[in-house]
């Protein structure tokens, strides 16, 4: 089921490349705005870079999540999904996995470029990449619950941000903290373990919640 769903979603992403690329473009754009906004003061920018990168990753991920179930909801495929995609756990996981590949993983690959733009210290880069790799799955998995709850509601974007900001906060805290420690030449093992732990916990629990949320949203409409 996981593989079936994964393949289907991947085809959907390939068919609408622009939509999938938009969050990445946003990430790039917003990072440039920060670099310009800091007005060439590269030291201060470098200090703020871990926080800027993590916050932007969070926001770009929100943009991508907002569209996670929208099209399926509009053309009625979501109803079929809720009724017939069994087991739901694997099917949901397949959907989220594609979203993560197209967004979380892609952002991780894009991160070195952002680090250059924002003058992040080279020492922090490995920790940043590892942190993103371990932390973004949690963002996608927890975010999917919110996306499932808000699908089809007016003003979904802001609402989604409101629901998810507090739930995403631990990932932000540990991610930034790890990157700062990495930049200072310290081992950020504890924070990285935390990120991994949150992701594993989210992996085991949130697909159930997402499936339940989808059922609520489909029954509602």
């Amino acid at each position: 089921m996981f593989a079936v769903q994964f393949r289907r979603e991947w085809l959907c992403v390939l068919r609408s490349k622009d939509e999938a690329l938009n969050p990445l473009v946003f990430l790039f754009l917003a990072a440039s705005l920060f670099a310009i906004g800091f007005g060439g003061s590269s030291d201060r920018l470098g200090e703020a870079a871990p926080a800027i990168i993590w916050v932007l990753v969070l926001l770009a991920n929100l943009l991508s999540l907002e569209a996670l179930f929208r099209r399926d909801f509009e053309d009625g495929a979501l109803e079929q999904f809720v009724l017939f995609a069994q087991p739901q756990f694997a099917a949901v996981l397949g959907k989220v996995a594609v979203q993560w590949c197209a967004c979380g993983l892609a952002m991780t690959l894009l991160a070195p470029l952002l680090a250059l733009m924002l003058n992040l210290s080279a020492a922090a880069l490995p920790t940043l990449l590892l942190g993103l790799l371990l932390g973004t799955p949690a963002l996608s998995l927890i975010g999917a619950v919110g996306a499932a709850l808000t699908v089809g509601l007016g003003g979904g974007g802001v609402l989604l941000a409101l629901l998810l900001a507090p739930l995403h906060l631990p990932v932000l805290v540990f991610g930034v903290s790890a990157t700062l420690d990495g930049g200072a030449g310290l081992a950020a093992t504890a924070q990285l373990y935390w990120l991994a732990g949150i992701s594993v916990l989210a992996l085991t629990l949130t697909p159930f919640a997402t499936a339940a949320a989808l059922r609520i949203s489909v029954e509602r409409s």
Binding site: I142, L169, P170, F174, A213, R220
Partner: peptide, 20 residues
Amino acid sequence: ACALLAIVGVINIPIIKYSV
């Protein structure tokens, strides 16, 4: 919908507390 969100939130609270 709120019930589901509340449950997710309650599970998250210990993590949030620890992280801050």
